[in-house]
């Protein structure tokens, strides 16, 4: 039997670990899932420490939580931090099957464990007598040295594989500034520079489109990525309202009748001619 302290610690960590795991499973956004998993992994690291696997506990924190999970987060950012899984299941019977299999599997494993009747354990006090790290080192560099060498080869292979997979061969010379300018003239779509985002020095955030003289939004002032994601904050109506208020107060102050300026019905149609930079151009 272990100490009461460990029992308490276990129950706390177990709740956190299972909660994290379930959170990972159920969170819609990948980034939340990653954070939940990180919590699970940290609690597992403490479990390792509690069980006398000091080295593994530290490695778990440094390598898993520190490196691998951050790698996950990087990729999540790369792919789109806000992208969500639609919760609607498209494969017929998949979810029911998964739940049934999961339940069956869990029940079987736990039943098997319960059946094993593990009532007594040795403990690591003897094995860890000269220190956990020293004990592991002795094993790694003697009994498991061959496997250790092979893992080195595996890691190198994985590194090279990752590089090969993400590498892009340049299939043609990149266009120079001059060529790009020439093409723009030749295509005659948008000769001057695109308008900058932001309105009247009140909002200069990149997701707020500039306004045209008639008060409608200039969508091409917002970068293509945001436009595609639909993350444009349209403040034109608010602006127009403030403009109208300003004109009203000016007219009041000057004693003139309020202007009969026609109101714009709504935002202007999107500029179809504005080219969204294609992939090649973007790079």
């Amino acid at each position: 039997m272990t100490s009461t302290g460990e029992a308490v610690q276990f129950w706390v960590l177990a709740v956190i670990a299972v909660g994290g795991a379930l959170g990972m499973l159920l969170m819609k956004k990948a980034v939340h899932s990653a954070l939940c998993l990180a919590a699970t992994m940290l609690s597992l690291a403490i479990c390792y420490l509690a069980q006398g696997a000091v080295f593994l506990g530290v490695v778990q924190i440094v390598v898993y939580t520190g490196a691998i999970m951050m790698l996950f987060l990087f990729v999540v950012m790369l792919v789109g931090v806000t992208s969500e899984d639609s919760l609607k299941e498209q494969l017929k019977g998949q979810r029911i099957g998964a739940v049934l299999c999961g339940l069956g599997f869990g029940v079987l494993l736990i039943a098997g464990l319960a059946n094993a009747r593990l009532s007594h354990f040795t403990g690591l006090s003897e094995a860890n007598a000269e220190g956990n790290v020293q004990g592991l080192a002795r094993l790694i560099f003697t009994k498991y040295v061959w496997a250790f060498e092979v893992t080195g080869a595996l890691l190198i292979t994985a590194a090279i594989g990752a590089m090969v997979l993400t590498h892009r061969e340049k299939i043609r010379e990149p266009l120079t500034q001059r060529q790009l300018a020439d093409r723009r003239v030749r295509d005659n779509i948008q000769l001057p520079p695109l308008p900058a985002p932001g309105v009247y020095a009140r909002h200069n955030a990149v997701d707020i489109p500039a306004l045209l003289p008639d008060g409608t939004v200039a969508e091409d002032s917002v970068m293509g990525t945001l436009r595609e994601r639909g993350q444009i904050r349209d403040v034109s109506q608010e602006m127009l309202q403030r403009m109208a208020e300003l004109e009203e107060s000016t007219a009041d102050w000057l004693g003139r009748p309020s202007s009969a300026r026609p109101q714009v019905a709504g935002p202007r149609q999107a500029l179809e001619t504005v080219p969204t930079p294609t992939k090649e151009e973007a790079e």
């Binding site: 069980q51 696997a53 354990f121 956990n132 094993l139 790694i140 292979t157 590194a159």
Partner: peptide, 29 residues
């Protein structure tokens, strides 16, 4: 490892971590 009182289980876990790291690198790529 704890139940049996030797460190071989921990070694195996260590290798599993290495393999997992390699797998994650390639998989994410």
């Amino acid at each position: 490892s704890r139940l049996h009182g030797n460190l071989d289980g921990q070694i195996l876990a260590f290798f599993t971590m290495v393999v997992a790291a390699a797998e994650v690198v390639v998989g994410l790529a």
